[in-house]
Nucleic acid binder design. Structure first.
Lengths: 140, 140
DNA sequence: GAAAGTTGATATCATTTAGTATCAACTTTG
DNA sequence: CAAAGTTGATACTAAATGATATCAACTTTC
């Protein structure tokens, strides 16, 4: 499931989209593929699941990319990774609301040792209702 | 601030937009103006503040209307109005994720006596970072 | 009671946006 | 080492989206 096994052209073929589209989703911060040391992208089955979710949100639900990014920026990562008050006060994400946390430089907090690609926060958007489900889980 | 005092044409003039645009925002579920018994709309200063926020989100942040609605659908109303497990299990909003709670029929729960227009949930979107601020308030 | 304004609807328009095609330089693969 | 594939960039296109204009029926206002 998490094994990075598809090259970008294979992934694109499997999803029925162009290679460029996959790179665009990445540039827009919607997906983080695995990268080999040579910078070549590789996609796992979970990645493809995520792409499917992105496509559904764009094509069926008619939400544009900026909109998706804004939704992702609402994921309460601070409550998920349980970062300290100290961390929060230095975190650009905690105060901002336009970009998801993984698009932001976070070297000096609890996230510095985490890989965003495998982080629970990033993966909250694996399937399409999952962000709200995550919130239900976190809130009383 | 909350007094409904502007007719739709006055409100439109104050915001520099057309009357139709205000009605569109309403149809799309982004705003709930006061309505006289004759069905005529009236806008308060707080309403205009909200319209300003909507316009900024559409024109500057480039998020489309569906996107805004999806963001609004993430407001964790259940934690704000503290509705019961019973209420939640019957609430179409609690399980859905495409429409804000005030676009949904809620006659048989704690919201039946509330007016959405003045509800804290609806007003979480008064200014533009306020939804995330609300979440910080609710989460540990 | 007449003029001005409002409502909801439809048709239309200008702009934006997601996505494709094409390109040269670089990397992988067999 | 040569063919196939990848990377990042730019130019372009078809479709969708926010917004305006126009309409007849109805209300408000003076």
């Amino acid at each position: 499931m998490d094994e990075p096994k598809y090259t970008i052209s294979n992934a694109a073929k499997l999803m029925g989209i162009s290679v460029h589209t996959l790179r665009m989703y990445e540039r827009e911060g919607l997906i983080i593929p695995f990268k080999k040391s040579s910078n070549q992208r590789l996609y796992s089955d979970r990645d493809l699941e995520r792409v499917k979710c992105i496509r559904k949100t764009i094509n069926d639900d008619k939400i544009n990319i900026e909109g998706i990014r804004r939704v992702l920026a609402l994921i309460p990562c601070w409550a998920i990774v349980k970062c300290s008050a100290e961390d929060r006060s230095h975190c650009e994400f905690f105060s901002g609301y336009t970009k998801p946390c993984w698009m932001i430089n976070h070297k000096k907090n609890v996230c510095k040792d985490r890989e965003c690609r495998t982080c629970e926060v990033y993966q909250s958007f694996g399937s399409c209702s999952s962000i709200k489900d995550k919130m239900k889980e976190l809130l009383p």
